[in-house]
């Protein structure tokens, strides 16, 4: 891990526009993520958080706008360049997206096989490492995704995302559907990995506890644009949605925990 990239801008989104059949999802959205921060993306359901993530990952060509990863434009990368960048990030999707016909261990081994060209004993050993990092017990390795609980599936997805030792981690609602204890454990795990492995994390979440516990800066998607800043800066905005979100009854409870 080099230390030269501290504070450097890892993701830069400028004037992003995404339109689906007459529906405008993003309308001139700007976003910036710096190295080694945990950046939270919030917004109501259907405001385009997942679409934003897919755009940054290059899975969805935007209608207009400019998306840069590590200073290189996402749409304009050559195949080789893209393969290099892809290995630097790990992704978990909103619905897990584990490959159903492979066991958990095989899911984790998939990127290792593809990019590291490892063979059998090494694969087993690395898969065990990833499962352990994601906090899964060893007996989960041989299970199929359909045999996992929701929380285990989230962890398995995280294990696969960690396989290539990413420097940039994208998480789409990693704690949705977890019980509060598992969700808190996931937060701690994430903070721990973040501090140990010098990760940059971009996380979409509706979970206020997670947000207050883990995120240094947050970006709120409102009317197709993003306003970002530290939690306190964003929470101070007078916009009614932000007021309702950060100062509603649930938020007060989560904040109280943090401040108290």
């Amino acid at each position: 891990m080099t230390t030269s990239d501290a504070g450097e801008t890892v993701i830069r989104v400028r004037g992003l526009v995404n339109r689906f059949a007459g529906q405008v999802v993003h309308d001139g959205l700007d976003m910036e993520v710096r190295a080694r921060e945990v950046f939270g993306i919030v917004g109501g359901s259907g405001t385009g958080k997942s679409v934003l993530l897919r755009t940054i990952l290059g899975l969805h060509p935007p209608t207009a706008g400019h998306v840069e990863l590590y200073g290189r434009q996402v749409g304009a990368m050559s195949r080789a360049e893209r393969a290099g960048i892809v290995q630097r990030f790990g992704v978990t999707f909103q619905n897990g997206a584990l490959i159903g016909s492979l066991t958990v261990a095989e899911n984790v081994e998939l990127p290792l096989r593809e990019y590291r060209r490892l063979a059998r004993p090494a694969l087993d050993e690395q898969a065990r490492l990833c499962l352990a990092m994601a906090g899964l017990p060893p007996d989960a390795a041989g299970k199929y995704p359909a045999q996992l609980s929701g929380g285990m599936a989230k962890r398995a997805a995280l294990a696969r995302a960690l396989a290539l030792e990413p420097r940039l981690l994208f998480l789409d609602e990693p704690t949705a559907g977890l019980d509060p204890i598992s969700a808190a454990a996931f937060d701690e795990l994430l903070l721990y990995l973040h501090s140990q492995l010098d990760l940059t994390v971009v996380m979409i979440t509706h979970d206020l506890d997670t947000l207050f516990r883990t995120c240094g800066r947050v970006g709120v998607i409102l009317d197709g644009k993003m306003s970002s800043g530290t939690l306190d800066q964003v929470a101070a905005s007078p916009h009614p949605w932000i007021q309702a979100y950060f100062h509603g009854p649930r938020a007060r409870a989560s904040r109280g925990e943090r401040d108290g």
């Binding site: 352990a132 060893p138 041989g142």
Partner: peptide, 22 residues
């Protein structure tokens, strides 16, 4: 050693306390 070596040793210790795979 890089910082994560201690982290990995911790992981290994924790893994030993868990039941092994079937």
């Amino acid at each position: 050693a890089p910082r994560h070596v201690a982290f990995l040793e911790g992981l290994r210790d924790r893994e030993r306390t868990l039941p092994p795979a079937d």
